[in-house]
């Protein structure tokens, strides 16, 4: 008797947690999308009005576009730099542990700290980058104040923060390449680049896809960086979807509309991730 119920007792914390903090919120979120609610006044049923508003809400679409811009810069940059550094670390070098630890440091530090630091680096008058630019005789750049540059600047910062993790992942991938392959290639007189494209790349292909999937999910949750650095400006060029949901929900207390944005956005994320996973599996 006791034995029979024991497994259920063991999994019950999960089931209770799932019911309260996952299943109910998902259901309630769908319900909320059909209502207007500012928390203090009673809920008001509005049918599909929130969805209608979403489709004509230029700021929301702008936030999606911003996310795409972010990903288009962030992902390739991340892969190239991470691969490059991983290749270097995979050579016979001294102090490998030190370099690896240094590259990894930003990964473990809070995004808040990173953002505060980069805000200073990107400063117009006193920032490091503009000082260097002026020193070599170039003009200052409005890193966070030029609408065309602010989002790429944030993407570069995010790359700096996360690339260490991907260096490690690539390093693990690189170490799975059987050394005989390289020896054979050396015998045939292959160049460094040939070896990289013909041997290394195919082996670490799965890692690359994984990096793409992880960075995509990361990019979709972009929040604290624009929240601290730009507040979503200039001209809404750095407003991310999560920041916009936060703004609608906790600035203006449009709970119904914020839930609609969250629900719709989550569907987009799911679709993108499913498509990416399909591609990965097909490739394998």
């Amino acid at each position: 008797m006791k034995k029979k119920y024991l497994p259920y007792f063991l999994v019950s914390p999960y089931l209770i947690h799932f019911a309260i903090f996952v299943a109910f919120p998902v259901g309630f979120s769908i319900y909320l999308t059909f209502n207007n609610w500012n928390i203090i006044a009673p809920m008001e049923f509005v049918g599909l009005a929130n969805y209608k508003r979403l489709f004509s809400d230029a700021t929301f679409w702008k936030s999606l576009l911003n996310t795409v811009i972010f990903l288009v810069i962030h992902i390739p940059l991340q892969i190239v730099i991470a691969l490059f550094l991983a290749e270097l670390l995979n050579q016979k070098i001294k102090f490998r542990g030190f370099f690896r630890a240094a590259f990894f440091l930003p990964v473990i530090v809070s995004g808040v700290v990173v953002t505060i630091l980069w805000q200073q680096l990107y400063g117009f008058d006193t920032g490091l980058f503009n000082r260097l630019l002026v020193k070599v005789g170039l003009g200052k750049i409005g890193w966070l104040t030029d609408p065309n540059i602010a989002m790429p600047a944030i993407a570069v910062m995010a790359t700096w923060k996360n690339v260490g993790l991907y260096v490690i992942l690539f390093l693990v991938g690189l170490q799975t390449v059987p050394p005989q392959y390289y020896e054979a290639a050396d015998l045939e007189g292959a160049t460094h680049f040939q070896k990289f494209f013909k041997i290394t790349l195919p082996v670490i292909n799965p890692t690359i896809f994984m990096v793409v999937v992880l960075s995509t999910i990361g990019g979709f949750s972009l929040f604290i960086e624009p929240y601290v650095m730009t507040g979503g400006g200039p001209l809404n060029s750095t407003i991310s979807a999560v920041l916009y949901i936060y703004k609608q929900g906790f600035f203006y207390y449009h709970m119904g509309y914020a839930a609609t944005l969250g629900f719709f956005f989550a569907m987009i994320i799911l679709a993108v991730v499913v498509i990416q996973k399909r591609l990965v599996e097909k490739d394998r």
């Binding site: 008058d125 002026v134 003009g139 200052k140 104040t145 507040g231 979503g232 400006g233 200039p234 809404n236």
Partner: peptide
């Protein structure tokens, strides 16, 4: 240095 560093005034440029 080619950049203005004294102004008549300043107002926050954020959209808040």
């Amino acid at each position: 240095d080619g950049y203005v560093d004294r102004w008549i005034g300043y107002a926050e440029v954020t959209v808040t």
